[in-house]
Each structure stands twice: as structure tokens, then as C-alpha cells.
């Protein structure tokens, strides 16, 4: 088994997949705690389905770079969901469910009606559950994700205390003169970007797991915001790493394997947290 691993690690594409996978896990877990606490656990799900719908439209319209359409549409929906969820008469989770199911159906419908590809169910399946494109990353793409991740981590560190205040008590933060709307906007844009970028890795059905599992696991173990954040990042990174290695060795799909490892880690945290308290 170790020999197989050694053999695989000689290929640059495996190294690339590891780097990008771990970075995506890192970034999605940073905001995971905030989203779970703001009761937006399923935003990942909703947005990923939006991205799926947008991707279907982009495919049908024959866009060379599909990101040009998916990214803006997903960002707009993220803003709408986070906004609408706070003020409006429709509750946050209902908005998410509506947008999510709607765009999933719409996307599939469009693909079905107009797609030229012969392998329709294969296409749909890889968008939903992640494709193998993580294994065909170019060097530029790897550098791009390294750069974006550094930017993301830096922004998170700089705004950490404000994100805490806005997550903990929005009214107090607003009374203290923080521009709560700006931070909410920032959070939704960033989450949309992460989702669109990581769709290739885990696919749109599984992306939520990336955001929720590490945060929930960490919340079982720790009781301060800082400890929970750090722990969820660490967990997410370790699980992604282990998941990718396992998927290479066992020849299983990357996304589902990572999620399985995340779920396993959650189970362990549940047991640990249960016995300590």
C-alpha cells in the first residue's frame, strides 16, 4: 500500500490535487463556524445548486469559461439569501430551500432539453458529486488557489474580531457602529467564491459537508470561539488530506471520500465531547 502511495506521490498531478484540496478545505472551514452559528448551514447546499443551474446554462450557451457565468450568478444569490434571511418575511432556511431546489430542477431541465452531449447522466453526475478535474489541474490553477487562499486567510485574520461580533450579536454590533451589512455582504461573497471554486473537487451535492462537518465537530469539543475556529480549520485540513490519500489508494471518488472522513471525524468528536462533559 505504501508503495502504491509512493508511486502516486511522484506524479505532480497528485501533489497538485493534494495542495488544492487542502486549501479548499481550509477556506471553507474558516467561514463554516460563522455560517453554522448564523443558522445558514445549508447555504452551501443552496449556492452549490445555484452554481449547478448556472453551469447548465453556461454549458448550453457554449461558454468557453463557464466560471464567467457561474461566479456572478452564485454571488448574487448568496447576497439575496443572506439578506432575505435576515429581514424578510420568509425565513432563511425556507429561502435557501426554495432557491436550491428551484435551481437544481431548472439546471437539470435545461441540460436535458438542450445538451448536445451524449453522456448526459455522466455530466450531471459529475457536476453533482464532483468530477475528476481535480486530478487534471494545471500549475497556474494551483498557484491561483494558493494566492486566493492566502488572501482569504489574511482577510479572515484581519476581520476576525468583527466577524465574531457580527456573528454573536448583530444588534450590539450595529449599535457599536460596525457596518454589519458590509460584513454580511463580505461573508456571502466569499462563501459564493469558495463554493464555485470547490465545486470541481466535491461536486455541488457534497459541498455543504465541507462547510458544516468541521464546524460541528469542533463545537462538540471546544467552547470558545477561537478554539472552535482553529479546531475546525485543523480538522478540515487533516480530513481533506486523509480523504484524498485514501481515495487515491482505494480508487474511490475524491469528494465522497473526503466527506466520509469528515463524518467519521464528527463521530469521534461526538464521542469525545460526550464523555468529557
Amino acid at each position: 500500500m505504501l508503495e502504491t502511495l509512493e508511486l502516486y506521490l511522484q506524479y505532480p498531478f497528485v501533489i497538485h490535487a493534494l495542495i488544492v484540496g487542502v486549501l479548499i478545505a481550509l477556506c471553507s472551514s474558516l467561514l463554516g463556524v460563522t455560517l453554522v452559528l448564523k443558522r445558514f448551514s445549508l447555504i452551501g447546499d443552496g449556492l452549490a445548486h445555484v452554481a449547478f443551474g448556472a453551469l447548465a446554462v453556461a454549458t448550453v450557451l457554449n461558454f468557453a469559461n463557464k466560471m464567467l457565468l457561474t461566479l456572478p450568478i452564485t454571488i448574487i444569490c448568496a447576497v439575496l439569501i443572506l439578506r432575505g434571511g435576515q429581514r424578510a418575511k420568509i425565513k432563511g432556511d425556507a429561502v435557501i430551500a426554495m432557491i436550491s431546489v428551484g435551481s437544481l430542477a431548472f439546471g437539470y431541465l435545461i441540460m436535458n432539453l438542450f445538451a448536445a452531449s451524449a453522456n448526459l447522466s455522466g455530466d450531471v453526475c459529475s457536476t453533482l458529486f464532483g468530477s475528476t478535474s481535480i486530478l487534471t489541474l494545471t500549475e497556474e490553477e494551483v498557484w491561483l488557489s494558493v494566492g486566493l487562499s492566502i488572501l482569504m486567510v489574511a482577510a479572515f485574520v484581519l476581520f476576525y474580531h468583527k466577524i465574531f461580533a457580527v456573528t454573536f450579536d448583530e444588534d450590539f454590533a450595529r449599535a457599536a457602529g460596525l457596518s454589519v451589512d458590509f460584513y454580511n455582504l463580505l461573508i456571502s461573497v466569499v462563501i459564493a467564491v469558495i463554493i464555485v471554486l470547490s465545486m470541481n473537487l466535491v461536486g455541488s451535492l457534497l459541498i455543504s459537508a465541507f462547510i458544516i462537518f468541521p464546524a460541528l465537530s469542533a463545537m462538540k469539543l471546544f467552547k470558545t470561539f477561537r478554539a472552535v475556529t482553529l479546531c475546525s480549520v485543523a480538522l478540515s485540513v487533516v480530513c481533506a488530506f486523509a480523504g484524498i490519500i485514501a481515495s487515491i489508494l482505494a480508487g474511490t471518488p475524491v469528494g465522497s471520500t473526503i466527506v466520509a472522513v469528515d463524518a467519521l471525524a464528527f463521530g469521534v468528536c461526538l464521542l469525545l465531547g460526550g464523555s468529557s462533559s
Binding site: 452559528l37 450579536d169 450590539f172 460596525l178 463545537m219
Partner: peptide, 22 residues
Amino acid sequence: QTQIQKDFPASVEEIVLSGCLA
């Protein structure tokens, strides 16, 4: 009353300090 959720992980120190953010 604040709508602080029951399961929010935050230490007393973190919360009091957030008053200085203003």
C-alpha cells in the same frame, strides 16, 4: 433579550472584549 443562540461557543472574555470594538 438578545437572540444569542443557546449553542454559541464563546468565552466570557471574548464577549466582554467585543465591547471594545466600537
